[in-house]
């Protein structure tokens, strides 16, 4: 973990605990984009993500006075986000249509996206937008817990150790969930490759 970021977070947390609401604003601004990605890829819905994010930060603000720094703020806020999102998903009936077609059109013009897909032979052959759609569908077929792990590892780029702290499970469990989720995604996308127009 980036030590500079950790120190900065600690300072902001301390100031918030002393009553400086502006310090918490800084934390909100800092973590909103990252948490947005996490929650959005678990819910696949922008509106739900927005509401959840608001609730997550509200809960964090209420609880931050009790935060004693046993873990980093980064881990703590991510734990709140993942747990609240998992609870939300349990309550929510799976709205399957939601944003599976929400793949942003702009993504295909993104330089990094083009570079990333240029070297991938299966991707080159398939329509990228359709493939992304299929990927979202495959993600939604995963259980909430598996999707959380996939989101944190593949999309957010977190290490296994960090994910295990956030989910409060062992690293072995994280690896096992990832392995199982990868197999499922692989099977689903292979089917798509064999029958691209289904």
């Amino acid at each position: 973990m980036d030590e500079a970021r950790k120190d900065e977070d600690q300072r902001l947390v301390a100031r918030t605990q002393e009553g400086d609401a502006g310090a918490f604003d800084d934390l909100v601004v800092k973590y909103t984009p990252r948490l947005y990605g996490l929650v959005y890829n678990m819910t696949s819905n922008h509106e739900d993500t927005n509401d959840l994010l608001q609730d997550i930060f509200a809960k964090a603000y209420k609880a931050i006075r009790g935060f004693r720094g046993k873990s980093s703020f980064y881990t703590w806020i991510h734990s709140i986000a993942v747990n609240m999102t998992l609870n939300f998903l349990k309550k929510r009936s799976r709205r399957y249509s939601l944003s599976l077609d929400d793949v942003d059109a702009s993504i295909q013009n993104d330089k990094e996206f083009i570079e990333a897909t240029a070297s991938s032979s299966p991707v080159r052959e398939a329509d990228l937008s359709e493939l992304q759609k299929r990927l979202n569908e495959a993600m939604m077929k995963l259980s909430d817990e598996h999707r959380a792990v996939v989101t944190m590892f593949h999309i957010q780029g977190m290490p296994h150790a960090e994910i295990s702290k956030i989910l409060n499970v062992s690293e072995g469990t994280v690896r096992s969930r990832l392995f199982y989720a990868n197999r499922q995604l692989q099977n689903y996308l292979d089917e798509f490759r064999k029958n691209p127009v289904t």
Binding site: P33, D104, F113, P122, V150, L185, L189, D190
Partner: peptide, 21 residues
């Protein structure tokens, strides 16, 4: 010609570009 873990990982990483308005 199958999707391996690396390719799936690359595809999933693209999802980080899905951003709100």
């Amino acid at each position: 010609d199958e999707f391996n873990d690396n390719e799936i990982s690359k595809l999933l990483r693209l999802k980080r570009y899905e951003q709100p308005a």
